[in-house]
């Protein structure tokens, strides 16, 4: 844990920012849309990681918040001709408010029951997307959503959109990083370890849980609205239970209670299938094998893997220093 916190210090952030700026210039053009999708998933999994990894609350319905915001912004900008930033803001607020309302009853549940509760919520929202045809255009999907435009500028190329998405990832990353290092973050981890112990220590468990739930829904909402104005078409299929499990997989594979892990998990799982396209027909087999092997040998996720490599490197250096020091003393 300590080394993770070390890596997310200022030089780590600078490196992250540099990587974001450099990536579209280093990678071929067609990677832009893949990276945009990866960025959206990174926002989703960072939010979910705050909830799952730090506070220990499982949500199997996160795609619902993702979808609510996507639909709200899509409908407001398309059917009601709102400006896009207003639509996005409304979408994010809707996700947050819904989470607050849902959070009151569901966060009283623990463990499997909370998982079931959020799962049920996700399914209900999915059904609403399908059935509220007059509003959502039903299963055949909402078309003609405008591209993101703000301050008189339309972000029509993928490169511009890439910077919008990854700029957002960066800001939200810094926000989450500050949060988990604050009193709040320690309180969340205390709740994760033991709710009773945390409340004995004077932590208002219910309030903290509700807050982090709403915050993770807001993250999902931001990702959802950005998705709608990127693809310009949304259908319920993108926000089904399958999408929720995908985000959970990214969090777990990336590493619980690690923001780097959340980003790494999202990027890894989005980009990996693109690499595997080169071995068509076998790609799904290899993809599955990679997932199984990662979880088998790195139960702490990609973040743990990086940490192990770093500490191994450190010990090699230390060993070398010792060895050379020893030799120096011999003569």
């Amino acid at each position: 844990m300590s080394s993770i916190r070390e890596t997310s210090s200022a030089p780590g952030l600078a490196l992250f920012a540099a990587a974001i700026v450099a990536a579209p210039f280093l990678l071929p053009d067609y990677y832009q849309s893949v990276l945009i999708v990866a960025g959206l998933f990174a926002i989703l999994s960072m939010g979910l990681n705050l909830l799952m990894g730090y506070a220990g609350q499982i949500s199997l319905g996160h795609a619902a918040f993702y979808g609510l915001s996507a639909y709200a912004s899509g409908i407001l900008t398309t059917t009601f001709h709102w400006p896009v930033p207003a639509g996005i803001a409304a979408g994010v607020v809707l996700s947050g408010v819904t989470a607050a309302l849902i959070g009151i009853p569901t966060l009283k549940l623990k463990g499997h029951y909370l998982a079931m509760g959020t799962l049920g919520f996700g399914v209900i929202v999915y059904i609403v997307f399908n059935e509220a045809v007059a509003l959502t255009a039903g299963p055949s999907g909402l078309t003609g959503i405008p591209r993101l435009s703000a301050f008189g500028k339309i972000f029509s190329t993928d490169r511009e959109y890439y910077f919008v998405v990854w700029g957002t990832v960066f800001l939200l990353f810094v926000l989450a990083r500050n949060l988990v290092r604050s009193r709040m973050g320690r309180a969340l981890r205390a709740i994760h370890t033991s709710e009773s112990a945390a409340s004995v220590l004077g932590i208002d468990v219910a309030r903290y849980k509700a807050f982090v739930f709403v915050l993770s829904a807001v993250y999902a909402g931001i990702a959802g609205a950005l998705y709608a104005h990127f693809v310009t078409f949304i259908s319920p299929g993108s926000f089904s239970f399958h999408a929720s499990t995908q985000v959970v997989t990214m969090v777990v594979l990336g590493g619980m209670a690690s923001l780097w892990g959340a980003v790494a998990g999202a990027v890894f799982l989005t980009v990996l299938p693109e690499w595997l396209r080169a071995i068509e027909d076998y790609d799904i087999l290899v993809y599955g094998a990679i997932l199984v092997l990662t979880m088998r040998f790195l139960p702490g996720g990609l973040a743990e893997g990086v940490e192990r490599v770093l500490s191994a490197l450190a010990s090699i250096f230390r060993g070398k220093a010792k060895a050379s020091g020893g030799e120096g003393k011999k003569p």
């Binding site: 832009q32 998705y227 693809v231 259908s235 299929g237 068509e280």
Partner: peptide, 22 residues
């Protein structure tokens, strides 16, 4: 050149970029 979108709209979007740009 055939790409599988796995019945997923997001995958179709990334696949089309690959077909057009790569």
């Amino acid at each position: 050149v055939v790409y599988d979108d796995e019945s997923d709209a997001t995958k179709a979007v990334t696949a089309i970029d690959r077909l057009i740009k790569k």
